[in-house]
Design a protein around this nucleic acid. Structure first.
Lengths: 222, 222
DNA sequence: CTTGTATTCAAGAGAACTATTGAATACTTG
DNA sequence: CAAGTATTCAATAGTTCTCTTGAATACAAG
């Protein structure tokens, strides 16, 4: 009856998952992966890491089963393993938000100044979009949009928003979304649109949460 | 618009919480704390760590807001900060269980051999206990029992179970519980009772989950 | 079969983490 | 106020993590 050893062994295994969450770069990779599968190269590009370093982080995540790899041609595509990983990330965010003062300060000072209107709820958005009351704007990069998006959403990456400003009707409400509750793309987009006198709001959370809440999507993986 | 820095700063903060979960001893401390508040000395004792080491781990947990400290007399009592911390721990366990082969193997080989009957569900237990159909057995140490327990439960720590075997009716079902889904105390107790021909089962999960599911408790903190 | 591309492997420097030890602090008790 | 207790602090050695660099592998295309 070596319960002590068994128990410690079990906690050691749990700690391996914790360790995977203990590095900012890995968390960032996980956030990108929450959008859908990605190649190593693509992940290295968006995260600003070297390819070798990205590969090493991904292997750590794979060792604890949080992501899986699929090889197609020359490229290796990584993807999150199941929705419970997204739930874990959300739990982590929750705890950090409610208990770490720095996070609160960061979010307060940086985000709320740009977003003083309440974000729109998912189900509400679906309803209004179907009635043609709002324009749904996906500000993520094109590849992410192509991999799946909210039904009826149009895609204008943040960098190109400036060029398309004149195609919006100032009286028609725009709802922007991107990768998740702390993805700044949507915040920046809303700020930019409001500067131009548009009625813009953010969607609560982002696309990963849209998926996990079981709402319909459009586009998708080949 | 230094979104990149802001974003990385945010992930760095999240990673602090992940780091708190990256050590087996800290996870074990968190499990004990899920039972209720505990002094440093008590935690050091159950975890087998030195007092100084325990104190350091607790301070790390406090820095990320997962636990809080309260001083009373000579002792400092630590407690979990809110139920979202328990949720985070459960998420971590979920991911580890479903994705790490070693965990599965550990649980399979060590626990299922001892527990081939399905564990009883919480709401079902409450119902049956009220009708007097089952004896609810709390096998945690006395101090933990005193700090709060399932209504009507009797307390016999595992070490003393042997002495009290004759007070059970072999025809009357016994449901044992302890600290959580992987606490081995209840498994060992059920194994021991069955060896003696008793009808014994485990409660699903443990006392922390009982609390978070909003069911009534008995006894409590002074 | 040779070339090019995407990814992984391997080694190493520097930083961070962990447990131990012994001293320091804060508080209670007599 | 002196003695005792619970906890924290500080320093340290050994281990582990992280990133970089350059080479190795696997595969596709020509």
């Amino acid at each position: 009856m070596s319960s002590g050893n068994f128990k410690h062994e079990l906690f050691t295994q749990f700690a391996r998952v914790g360790k995977a969450l203990s590095n900012a770069n890995r968390l960032e990779l996980l956030e990108f992966l929450a959008q859908g599968e990605r190649s190593v190269e693509a992940l290295a590009k968006v995260s600003g890491l070297t390819v070798a370093n990205t590969s090493q982080h991904l292997q750590q995540l794979r060792q604890v089963g949080m992501v899986s790899a699929r090889k197609e041609g020359l490229k290796v595509y990584y993807a999150l393993n199941g929705t419970d990983v997204i739930e874990l990330l959300n739990s982590l965010r929750n705890v950090a938000e409610s208990h770490i003062a720095d996070v609160d300060r960061l979010v307060q000072t940086y985000l709320t100044t740009k977003d003083n209107l309440e974000p729109l709820q998912r189900t509400e958005l679906l309803d209004r979009a179907q009635k043609g009351l709002v324009t749904v704007l996906d500000v993520r990069p094109k590849e992410e949009y192509d991999a799946g998006h909210v039904p009826g959403a149009i895609n204008i990456p943040l960098a190109e928003l400036e060029k398309h400003l004149d195609q919006f009707d100032p009286e028609h409400e725009i709802v922007a979304y991107c990768r998740g509750p702390h993805c700044v793309l949507a915040f920046d987009a809303v700020a930019k649109l409001r500067e131009q006198g548009m009625k813009a709001r953010r969607l609560e959370d982002g696309y990963p949460e849209w998926i996990t809440s079981g709402l319909p999507t459009e586009g998708g993986n080949p």
